[in-house]
Every structure is written in structure tokens, then in C-alpha cells.
Design a protein around this nucleic acid. Structure first.
Length: 815
RNA sequence: GCCCGGGUAGCCGAAUUGGUCCAGGCAGCGCGCUUAAAACGCGCGGUCCUUCGGGACGUGCGGGUUCGAAUCCCGUCCCGGGCACCA
């Protein structure tokens, strides 16, 4: 093997890495077919990267983790799908276009090329035959197709909604463009404006999204965040009648037991009936002011509870009492019914409002030292329910309201429908046209994709940039053939990234987004890896899409990601890396200086990958030293052939260490993703074999053991440092490590010859004794009892009890 | 305010089931190799006391359970993250 190229004198990572990368590329080593070949499948996936500039340290980490898992899975007999692509639509490319005039496609594709170049440089084992970019017409054609399927089912719909509007730039803004209630570009205060927008009806899936969290293996904190985001609350809808206009106003409450304590009634400023009930200048002005404020201002902490009386009343259904109506901005139109019953004695917000406006506060639940009291207790001032515990009264009141036709049990969610319209250029066009005669008409499947046209000017003009492409906007109605206009908004980029993991399964299918059998053969993703910052939005949307597609009959999986791993952030000097702090570590420079193997291994070594991990510039040198030591050991082992057929002979410390390392790495990598302790185990093995080099190489059997230990170290380091692992393994064995099964530890060699028995006196360690393995408890106790140090410390006291932990310790209790 | 994590050596961290606290790396110190340095290899490594045998203390802090606690329980402080007018 070494004959083809002269071997170097020292570890030269860049040369080794280039060599193996060429082999993997030329032989398409990591490509995988869709046919079942009898091996269990394993779908390993990192979250879709957004290509901007060049990859950062977080990318290096996520692929280091994912690649280690993919390699481990392959070598434990799995057929592994490990693809990669790009989340290529998005705002930064468009902002760049506004500044420079460069087409977003050009800057995006330049970034993709750089990302791809560096991913190749890292030697990540990707099936590149499935590579995709969400901005390619061959991809977004199917994004549009899927939109139409959801539209057919009523899961995509249009309604008027508030958008962020910058009065200075005269444009709508995406949520990401609003920073602290101000326009990201010009700094003007952002206001709310009503516009027709497209939504996905994710709320229809709220219950299933909640319930199925129990079926997936995700980090607890992510599950909790999703649960909170869905925000299911049980309560009742209660109807309040208004005599002034004859209307019935339902409200949602989680506390029907406090109904007798409702002393006023509040509507959100957006409530359509507010001005109908009272159009005085004072009310009109209050509503106008509230509507002009941004959501973040309105939701600000410590904000005073403002509001205006409407001069009308509603009837409290439980006691017929007339209670005054108010409009106040602490009530939200989007939640419940946009109106609330206010119970100041038992709700903090209502209490604050009541105090400020001099409204009556009536206690109906006993308990607590002062009001407001939100806890439980017996009911008072509640008519026939007095004396009952409020938890019991809860159901009885709802039942009674139901019988009277004044209310019913109700469930509410914090989750809102997903607003997908974006008034920007660089995104997937929404495949809808507007016809005066037919209204909003879906573009027929055979006319997809609706391609994004080129435009000259990306600058904001008070409407979506696409509206400027007049030739593109003007079209014929697919229904009646008359003149029509295209939808000029594009889709939220989260739409693109909510189904890409399905496309990978069948990435080159141009007759459908995927073949159902193929997707069913791969899904669900067995191991998903990414940052916790996507804990809510991306993961919720992808789950929703998967469920909706399953309902439509496009696939079988109910959940997209069976197992989720969230990586921690890499810090430097204890602080988040950021350009402004100037403490950014560039993966490109690291790889140039130390090689990809060292960079990847170090990032997995600083700590458990789920935790943070503080970057230390000197630390990577330590890993580089270790890899160099392994390389030298490989060259050394290659230069010391053991005669053909030499047995390994009697176990030595090195042989035992090798099997210990196999066992340790297998458990750490396979069970707990503890890459840091796995790598530490390989370091220990290499340290051990380096230390015993001379004595081992003195005999044929020792030489065989040395070679075995070196090959084992190479085999075990391979998932973390694939190039060096391949190189050293080949040097010693002439074989390719990735074609070898994962090594198995010999259980007999995992058992040491002797164990250390700790002798304790009243729980304090007084001696340590070497003892043979497998000693009976009584023998172990007798051995410990004979300890001279124990005798010295006993000082005349009497042993009253001995606790024996076999193979570990003996604790004597003495008085 | 509420809900999760976490606090071990100068630094990053290990201790997987309640059983030897600190594996591995960094930094530091000593030794070897070298004319020298780098590189490389080997070794040391908590604090205080000591009659040099050893002893006491030690996992943020204070209590508790236990033969035995970094690990379990109660209280408290600090750091990080998430949510936060959702009725």
C-alpha cells in the first residue's frame, strides 16, 4: 500500500485529508440507494443550513456530531441516509441585493459553493447525489404543489390580518425585520396595518401536536417549550348579553368558578363592536392609539393598565347583574373571543385595572392573605354554590350554564395559525392568481412551478417587490381564461424547510415531490441534530406538515423526527462568539492550520456536545498532538510486521486497555452521545501503547498486540477523525476502516486480573488493597479486616458492623 | 414572576445505579533528549497542619437522610436558557 506514495515523515493532516476525500468522492462511498437490502435503515440528519458567507463554528459542531453518528451507524450494520442541502431563500440575501444590486441568486449560490467547498474539506460523509437548494425551481415547484394540496383541504386559507408596517419606508416588514418595535433598516417606529394574508391552519392540529409529543424521544426542555407554545387551556365559554345593542358576547375563561366575582367586562381595542357601542372621540382615539402600537410595545412589562369605559353594560349570566363594559389594550383580540369577564378579586391583571379605575372588587373564593388571590378555596358570595370547594363548583357551574344555554365547556390554545405570506422577493411564490370573476384561483399543477421572475430593483416601494414585475403579474385566469393577477407575496422560508427531509428520500423525482413507498422506507428521521433555537418554530411546523401530509395520504409517518439531539453553543472565554466581540473562531482557518480531523475532534472533546463547551485555542493543539502520536504509532506499527499467523498471546495491560476502549467508546457513542469521554478513552489507549512500545516490540506476540492496539485506536477514532482513522488503519492492516464492522470488546479481557478494594472506617477511606477478582464477600471482608492501617486507626474501638460491596469496598462501622 | 438546566483543580471537564472525588485535555512545575531552543518522551499535580509516620478539611452555601452523599431530601445564593397581560 505504501508503495504508491512515499510516506511522509510526520503527521501531515492536509495531505492525508485530501487523499481520503478524493477516494470518497471518486468512489461515491457515502451514496445510498433506496432499496431495502436487508440491513436496518437509519436516517441521520442535521438541520438544513442557511448559506450565508461561510460556515461558522456551530456548523462545524453539528456536522461533527452528525457524522460521528452516521459513521457509527454504518459500521454497526445500518443502511444510512445522510444527506445535505441548503435553506437558500431568505432575507439576508435580499438585503444584500438592496445594498449592492447583486441578484440574490448570485450571492446565495456563491455562499452555497463556499459552504459545499468547506463541507468537503471537513470530510463529512454526505450522500451528495441528494443535494438540494430550496431556491431551485426543481425544489420549490414541489413546495408550491404541497401548498396547493393543503389549500385543497382548507389547511391554507386567506384572511385579513395585522402586519408590521414601516411608515417611513412605506413597506410591510417581516417579523424578523422588526427590532424592538422599530424598522431594522431605517429605525422608524413600526405600526400595525390590516392586510389580506395567507395562513396555514396549524391550530386544527393543536391537540395532535400536543398528544404526540409523548411518542417521540426529544430533550425534555424542547418538549416543554412546544407544550407551552401550544398552550392548551381548559375552561368554559360563557355568554354575556348586552341590552344596548342586543348582542351576545361570549368570553373564554379558565375560571368559571369565579363568575360571581365578575364586576366588569372588557373588550380588546380591535374588537369590531367597540366603535359600534360607543363612537365618542375619546373611545375612537383610544382605539386608534392602541392599533398604531406594535405588539412588543403593547406587551411590554410593567405597562400601565389603560382603558376607557364604553358607557354600556352586559348581564352577568349567573346573577343577572349589569356590569360596565370597557375597552382596554390588555385584552388581546387573537386569544379567546377578544373579550373577557373581569374578576378583580382573583386575577392580578383585572385587579390592577379595577384599582386604577375605581371598580368594585368582590371576593368569591376564600383564602390567601390579600387580594388578588388566585388559589383554591371554598366559595362565598356565589349564591347556591356557597360553601362548595371551588374545584367542585367549577364543573357544576359549567353544567348549569349549559342547561341554561348560557355557556359550555371550551378549550383554548395559545397556538395561532401560521401566517406564511411575506412581502418580499427572495422566496417561493405563492401559486395563486386573482381573477375579478373567479376570485382567488389556484395555479393548476401542470403550470408549476410559478417561477420567480428576475427584477431590476429590490428596494422597498410600499408593496411586495414582485408587484413591480408587471409582465409576470399579469396572467390569465386558469378557471375562466380572463385577465388575472398573480399573488405577489412569497412564502415564509419556514415553509421551504418544513418538508426538505422528505425530499431527500427521493430527491431526483421530477414527477412528484416524492414516491410514497420511498419516503415510507426512510421516514421517520431516526436522529435529528441541530440547535435548540429551532425548538419551537421549525420543529412545530415540520411536525404539522408531516401530519397534514399523512392525512392527505402522501406518507405514513405521523412524526418526522423520532429522536432529537440539540447541541450546545460553543463559547470562547465564556462568552458567545460574535463578530462584534471579535472572538469568532473561523472553521476555515482551523482546518487550514490543524486539519479537519483535529478541528472536528476537538469540538467534540471540550465537553458533552449537548452542553456548551468553551473554546480554548491551546486546547486544539493538545488534540493535534494526540492525533500526531496516533499517526506515529501507525507508522511505527507498519514498520514492525509480526510474522504471519502470530497469535496475540497472553493478555497484557495494552491488550486489556484496547478492549476497555472498545467497550467505552461503544457505550459512549452508541448510548449517550458522550463524544468527549469517548475521545478521552482513545487518548488513554494511545498513551498506554506509546508507553509500552519498546517492551511490546521486543517479541512477535508483543508486536502483534501493539499492531492490534494501534489498529483498534484508529478504528475507534474514525467516527471523529475519519481521515486519520482511515490512514492509520490502512497503514497497519492494509484495509479500509469504514468497510470493517465496528469492533467488539472481548468480555474476558474487560475483567481486570485484580481489583482495588477500598477499606473504610465509618465511611472514611483508610486503606486500599489489591485483591483477586471474584472474591467471595466473606473473603473480601476477611482481607479488609486484616488491613494494618485499619488496625492502626481502630484505636481500641470495636467493629460492630461491616458493609461489603463486592469487588469495590468494605466499610467497617466501629464504636 | 413562572418553568427548565447548571455550580467539582488556575481553565475546559470526568465520576453512567448512593460506594476510591477529579479520567482526559489545557496551563504550570521537574526530568530526559539537544551545543541550545523548538518538537518529542517521562514524571508531578486540591487546601491547611505535620514530630514527615501521617492527620484534618474539601464538589456554591446551611441543614437533613444513610454504614457511606458531587449524586437523594429541605432551605438558600449565584450563573445560563425558555416563557411571560393568553383571561
Amino acid at each position: 500500500m505504501a508503495a504508491e506514495t512515499e510516506r511522509a515523515e510526520s503527521y501531515e493532516p492536509r495531505a492525508i485529508e485530501a487523499r481520503w476525500q478524493r477516494v470518497w468522492r471518486d468512489e461515491r462511498t457515502w451514496e445510498v440507494g433506496n432499496e431495502d437490502d436487508g440491513r436496518p435503515k437509519s436516517y441521520v440528519l442535521e438541520m438544513l443550513p442557511y448559506p450565508s458567507g461561510e460556515p461558522h463554528i456551530g456548523h462545524l459542531k453539528v456536522y461533527s456530531v452528525g457524522d460521528a453518528i452516521a459513521h457509527y451507524k454504518r459500521r454497526t450494520g445500518h443502511r444510512v441516509l445522510h444527506p445535505l442541502g441548503y435553506d437558500a431563500f431568505g432575507l439576508p440575501a435580499e438585503n444584500h441585493a438592496i445594498r449592492t444590486g447583486q441578484h440574490p441568486r448570485e450571492s446565495t449560490e456563491a455562499s452555497i459553493a463556499e459552504f459545499r467547498r468547506q463541507f468537503d474539506d471537513w470530510g463529512v460523509s454526505i450522500d451528495w447525489s441528494r443535494e438540494l437548494g430550496t431556491h431551485e425551481p426543481s425544489y420549490y415547484r414541489w413546495t408550491q404543489w404541497l401548498f396547493l394540496r393543503l389549500h385543497e383541504r382548507g389547511l391554507a386559507y386567506r384572511k385579513e390580518a395585522a402586519v408590521n408596517w414601516c411608515p417611513n419606508d412605506a413597506t410591510v416588514l417581516a417579523n424578523e425585520q422588526v427590532v424592538d418595535g422599530h424598522c431594522e433598516r431605517c429605525g422608524a417606529e413600526v405600526v400595525q396595518r390590516q392586510l389580506e394574508q395567507w395562513f396555514f391552519r396549524i391550530t386544527e392540529y393543536a391537540d395532535r401536536l400536543l398528544a404526540d409529543l409523548d411518542t417521540i424521544d426529544w430533550p425534555q426542555n424542547v418538549v416543554t417549550m412546544q407544550r407551552n407554545w401550544i398552550g392548551r387551556s381548559e375552561g368554559a365559554e360563557v355568554v354575556f348579553h348586552c341590552d344596548a345593542n342586543g348582542a351576545d358576547y361570549p368570553v373564554f375563561t379558565t375560571r368559571p368558578d369565579t363568575l360571581f366575582g365578575a364586576t366588569f367586562f372588557v373588550m380588546a381595542p380591535e374588537h369590531p363592536d367597540v366603535l359600534e357601542l360607543n363612537d365618542s372621540p375619546e373611545v375612537a382615539e383610544y382605539v386608534r392609539r392602541a392599533l398604531s402600537e406594535s405588539a412588543s410595545e403593547r406587551g411590554a412589562e410593567d405597562r400601565e393598565k389603560t382603558g376607557v369605559a364604553l358607557g354600556t353594560t352586559v348581564t352577568n349570566p349567573v346573577n343577572g347583574e349589569q356590569i360596565p363594559m370597557y375597552v382596554a389594550d390588555y385584552v388581546l383580540m387573537e386569544y379567546g373571543t377578544g373579550a373577557i369577564m373581569a374578576v378583580p378579586a382573583h386575577d392580578e391583571r383585572d385587579h390592577e385595572f379595577a384599582v386604577k379605575h375605581g371598580l368594585p372588587i368582590r371576593r368569591v373564593i376564600e383564602g390567601g392573605d390579600e387580594l388578588p388571590y388566585a388559589g383554591d378555596g371554598p366559595m362565598v358570595g356565589s349564591g347556591r354554590f356557597d360553601g362548595l370547594h371551588n374545584r367542585e363548583a367549577f364543573a357544576q357551574i359549567v353544567e348549569w350554564l349549559g342547561a341554561e344555554g348560557k355557556g359550555e365547556p371550551a378549550v383554548n390554545y395559545r397556538l395561532r395559525d401560521w401566517l406564511l405570506s411575506r412581502q418580499r422577493y427572495w422566496g417561493c411564490p405563492i401559486p395563486i392568481v386573482y381573477c375579478d370573476a373567479c376570485g382567488a384561483v389556484p395555479v393548476p399543477d401542470d403550470q408549476l412551478p410559478v417561477e420567480l421572475p428576475d427584477i431590476a430593483d429590490y428596494a422597498p416601494k410600499g408593496r411586495s417587490p414582485l408587484a413591480a414585475a408587471e409582465d409576470w403579474v399579469r396572467t390569465d385566469c386558469p378557471s375562466c381564461g380572463g385577465p388575472a393577477r398573480r399573488e405577489t407575496d412569497t412564502m415564509d422560508t419556514f415553509v421551504d424547510s418544513s418538508w426538505y427531509f422528505l425530499r431527500y428520500c427521493d430527491a431526483r423525482n421530477d414527477g412528484a415531490p416524492w414516491d410514497r413507498d420511498v419516503v415510507d422506507g426512510w421516514m421517520a428521521v431516526d436522529q435529528y441534530i441541530g440547535g435548540v433555537e429551532h425548538a419551537i418554530l421549525h420543529l412545530m411546523y415540520a411536525r404539522f406538515f408531516t401530519k397534514a401530509f399523512a392525512d392527505i395520504g402522501l406518507l405514513s409517518a405521523e412524526e418526522p423526527f423520532a429522536r432529537l439531539f440539540t447541541q450546545g453553543m460553543v463559547t470562547r472565554d465564556g462568552a458567545k462568539m460574535s463578530k462584534s466581540k471579535g472572538n469568532v473562531v473561523s472553521p476555515r482557518e482551523l482546518v487550514e492550520q490543524f486539519g479537519a480531523d483535529a478541528a472536528r475532534s476537538y469540538i467534540l472533546y471540550v465537553g458533552h456536545p449537548a452542553e456548551g463547551g468553551d473554546w480554548n485555542d491551546k486546547g486544539i493543539e493538545g488534540i493535534h498532538r494526540f492525533l500526531s502520536r496516533l499517526w506515529r504509532a501507525g507508522a511505527d506499527a507498519a514498520a514492525h510486521e509480526a510474522p504471519e499467523g502470530t497469535a496475540l498471546g497472553d493478555p497484557t495491560e495494552v491488550l486489556r486497555k484496547a478492549h476497555w476502549a472498545i467497550d467505552k467508546v461503544t457505550a459512549d457513542l452508541g448510548e449517550r452521545f458522550a463524544t468527549h469521554t469517548a475521545i478521552a478513552a482513545v487518548i488513554e489507549l494511545v498513551n498506554e501503547l506509546t508507553k509500552h512500545r519498546d517492551e511490546l516490540l521486543g517479541s512477535p506476540q508483543g508486536t502483534a498486540q501493539y499492531r492490534f492496539a494501534v489498529a483498534t485506536a484508529a478504528s475507534l477514532i474514525f467516527p471523529f477523525a475519519p481521515h486519520l482513522g482511515s490512514e492509520v488503519y490502512e497503514m497497519v492492516t492494509g484495509r479500509r476502516v469504514w468497510e470493517e464492522p465496528w469492533p467488539a470488546a472481548d468480555p474476558e479481557l474487560l475483567v481486570a486480573e485484580t481489583v482495588t478494594v477500598v477499606v473504610q472506617l465509618n465511611g472514611k477511606t483508610v486503606d486500599k488493597l489489591e485483591a483477586p477478582v471474584g472474591l467471595a464477600e466473606a473473603e473480601q471482608e476477611a482481607l479488609a479486616r486484616g488491613s494494618e492501617r485499619l488496625a492502626g486507626r481502630l484505636d481500641g474501638r470495636e467493629i460492630v458492623k461491616a458493609i461489603v460491596v463486592p469487588g469495590r469496598l468494605v466499610n467497617f462501622v466501629a464504636r
